[in-house]
Design a binder for these strands. Structure first.
Lengths: 242, 242
DNA sequence: AAACGACGTAATTTCGAAAATGTAAATATT
DNA sequence: AATATTTACATTTTCGAAATTACGTCGTTT
């Protein structure tokens, strides 16, 4: 029974997709880095075709860009991209919030409270560096999802999810440079309370401020990383190395 | 010099992607249809891997859905999906319009006028069945794109484009059942005029009405096609048959 | 007779080698 | 010496066969 290398019921391509997405968001695969098949094959232990499929899907998520006939590159980061991303996220997330408040039922409220509780407890357990934890990041994502899960628009939710994950990479980039962390738990609680109280205007305002403040902090703490990714010289001597 | 089978500079996968997208939008590949590799290989004359890549990208565009380990299916159509699609399109397109009016310059106006002229001329040349023409559909798409091209948000534009193409399939489905066609040229001209006059509120209102009316007509003329795609029995006798 | 399980076939999914393409160094030409 | 052309190599892209998985059929049991 040692042949359970795959998560069971999942194709290998889907598995590689998940792992690569995690590696890109965590910046193990750095923004702008060339993705050579030779190297990737060693890391993820799959064939060219399978890699190609995973990469194609990541292109669609905006985490990888494909340069026709010249391979794949991890999507670069820039202040312009982050600014635009923030703009679109505010638009989409505000709408999701309004819809969720309109359509949400008791179970929706319960899910939110549960998700907040899980996030909050882990936060307390981890102490002041909770934001570096991979697991907290997951619970944070699930909390935000629970807020808008009842929005009723599958298309809007899907768009929101992709934007959220791209933003997550920026958050991760800044978190390692921060010494202090604003009291996020309070902010999250305020958003949750406004939504459950069905105060649409306030909830929209709070979620917008939440997104904008996060972006401002990313620029403040990690802005220096977005300097000049304009092509690393790159002798072709040792291959991969990454 | 007879070796120009590929559009030059484009990978084969990208070529197949374009052709399949066209076939799905034109309903040559019908909504809900199972996409068997054997059959697709004959139609598009490429290998499994190449097909798989093209299909993966179409999944991201929402024109194909992948059932894990059970192959690919042309994205089904339904009134629910169309309704939701319309809702999101109104949200996104209104924002694009407002941004384009804010940021557009003289060249932007010129592009719009040019695109309208091309569409209008072809419309006159084709007569009352212009809406059945593949070429008019292309010019129509380019006109709508020109309206929002100056919006300044790459992310919003990309989202808009994907939504537009999914909606295009619904338009195509209804067009073949319509005997009369509303005077679209007038509507388009009104939208164009409002935008160039920089009347943001009016332009947003007009584009919203334009989208909603189109949707209403799709439901009116093609609604009967969205009945019950809930699994065709499907004996496996003859394989493929498209 | 109905329900369950094993078999065989048809489909998808994965693989690694072969072909096509791009890139840079080396050579030739003006 | 500077530019253009050739040559060699690194990398991506494509292919079709092999492995894996799902599905329908048939046989067995209760």
């Amino acid at each position: 029974m040692h042949e359970r290398l795959k998560p069971a019921g999942e194709t290998r391509a889907a598995d590689v997709l998940h792992r690569m997405r995690a590696d890109i968001i965590s910046c193990t695969l750095k923004p702008g880095a060339k993705l050579r098949f030779e190297g990737l094959r060693d890391i993820y232990a799959v064939s060219f075709s399978t890699l190609r499929e995973a990469l194609s899907r990541l292109v669609a998520e905006g985490l990888v860009v494909a340069e026709d006939q010249r391979g794949f590159v991890v999507a670069p980061v820039s202040i312009d991209d982050l600014t635009d991303l923030t703009y679109v996220r505010v638009l989409v997330e505000r709408e999701c919030v309004a819809l969720a408040i309109k359509h949400g039922d008791d179970d929706w409220e319960a899910q939110i409270i549960g998700a907040f509780h899980r996030m909050d407890r882990l936060q307390n357990r981890l102490g002041s560096t909770y934001y570096l934890s991979e697991e907290w990041g997951k619970l944070h994502g699930e909390f935000h999802f629970s807020l808008v899960a009842a929005c009723g628009s599958p298309n809007l939710l899907e768009i929101r999810q992709k934007l959220f994950e791209r933003a997550h990479r920026y958050r991760r980039m800044s978190s390692q440079f921060r010494t202090k962390w604003r009291a996020k738990d309070v902010e999250h609680k305020m958003i949750m309370d406004a939504m459950i109280a069905r105060d649409t205007a306030r909830a929209m305002e709070l979620i917008e401020r939440h997104i904008r403040e996060t972006t401002e902090n990313v620029i403040k703490y990690a802005g220096h990383l977005f300097a000049a990714p304009d092509e690393q010289p790159r002798k072709r001597t040792a291959h991969a190395a990454e």
